[in-house]
């Protein structure tokens, strides 16, 4: 899940008169019985809104995420790596399409969702506002970013909204490929020359903290988790997921022979978990607000693609209309 802005962004909106106490209670009973909610079922307007926002953010993130990785396709160091990266980026486009499709079942159109992305109104994961400046960044993104995404998305496979849950099952399978391939890039670099090791360490230094931020604000400040939890849209809290991620990732870094950029990182024998340092939440909020290294470039790239493609889309619909007219004649 790439939705770190979600929990705090939601404003209290006026209650929908259709959300009668009876309906709400019946809905909650279905959720509590672990029933899946399907597109045609009645749902509270807040549930629908929350899902639309979360799912569209997720889809946007898949799409914007193609940019930092696409940045290295033409420079991949071997043909095999080039093929793997191309396939990965293609998968991400597929995830985006698939999740947009699932979001449309909630009564919104992909065109409108994309328009919100392009105007800057909708959010996408801040992780993609960081630059990919070396080949090791591609390894690190697979290892950490896809790794964090899996951690987030596995519970979503049990999300109460059927189309989203099913989308996540499929997406998770591919993300775990990406994670392994990313780790494999890192392994190769860490077994390589001093320069390659330096490249790998540099990438870890830059991506570690942002990938911890992917899990969203701390539970202490995250106001909206409670409702999402009750609706079983969210099933595990931000901090719990983050801890799980740290616990599995630290030994992987050790195996690579890399040093985590965190002086406070220590294994706590009593709890069996790693304790880690304070996340720079100021950086998190700044990047979310638009003040990251690549925020402007990412949005400009998507807008430029959209604008330059307008004549193509217009041609396609003009042709389709002509064809329909010919068929009717």
């Amino acid at each position: 899940m790439y939705t770190q802005g979600l929990d705090q962004k939601q404003k209290k909106s006026a209650a929908d008169p259709a959300d009668t106490p009876g309906r709400l209670a019946a809905f909650q009973a279905r959720i509590d019985a672990d029933e899946k909610i399907e597109p045609k079922d009645w749902m509270p307007s807040g549930y629908r809104k929350t899902l639309i926002r979360q799912m569209s953010q997720h889809a946007h993130s898949e799409i914007v995420g193609m940019l930092p990785e696409g940045n290295w396709i033409t420079r991949a160091p071997t043909l095999r790596r080039k093929a793997i990266l191309l396939a990965k980026v293609q998968d991400e486009a597929g995830h985006g399409l698939y999740i947009y499709g699932a979001t449309e079942t909630l009564g919104v159109s992909r065109d409108n969702l994309v328009a919100d992305l392009l105007s800057g109104k909708a959010k996408y994961s801040s992780i993609f506002n960081y630059p990919t400046i070396s080949w090791a960044d591609i390894g690190t993104i697979g290892w950490l970013v896809d790794g964090a995404a899996i951690m987030n998305q596995i519970p979503l496979c049990r999300c109460s909204y059927g189309p989203y849950a099913r989308a996540m099952v499929r997406v998770c399978k591919e993300e775990s490929f990406h994670q392994r391939q990313g780790y494999e890039i890192m392994l190769e670099l860490c077994r390589g020359t001093d320069e390659q090791k330096r490249m790998a360490q540099g990438a870890l230094d830059r991506w570690w903290w942002p990938s911890l931020m992917m899990f969203g604000p701390s539970d202490k400040t995250s106001e909206h988790s409670a409702q999402s939890m009750a609706w079983k849209i969210k099933r595990i809290s931000n901090d719990e997921l983050r801890q799980k991620f740290v616990d599995v990732t630290v030994p992987q870094a050790e195996y690579l022979g890399l040093k985590m950029p965190d002086e406070d990182l220590v294994f706590d024998q009593k709890t069996g978990h790693y304790r880690f340092g304070e996340i720079d939440w100021e950086e998190f909020w700044e990047v979310l607000k638009g003040n990251g290294k690549c925020n402007r470039e990412r949005l400009e790239a998507r807008n430029s693609a959209h604008d330059k493609g307008r004549w193509v889309r217009e041609a396609a619909s003009a042709y389709a209309e002509k064809q329909a007219a010919r068929d009717a004649a």
Partner: peptide, 19 residues
């Protein structure tokens, strides 16, 4: 073309052909 196509579907197609 990856990341810069006129439609998402076309970016996928281009990536697919490149692959």
């Amino acid at each position: 073309w990856v990341g810069h196509g006129p439609e998402l579907e076309e970016e996928m197609a281009m990536a697919n052909f490149a692959l």
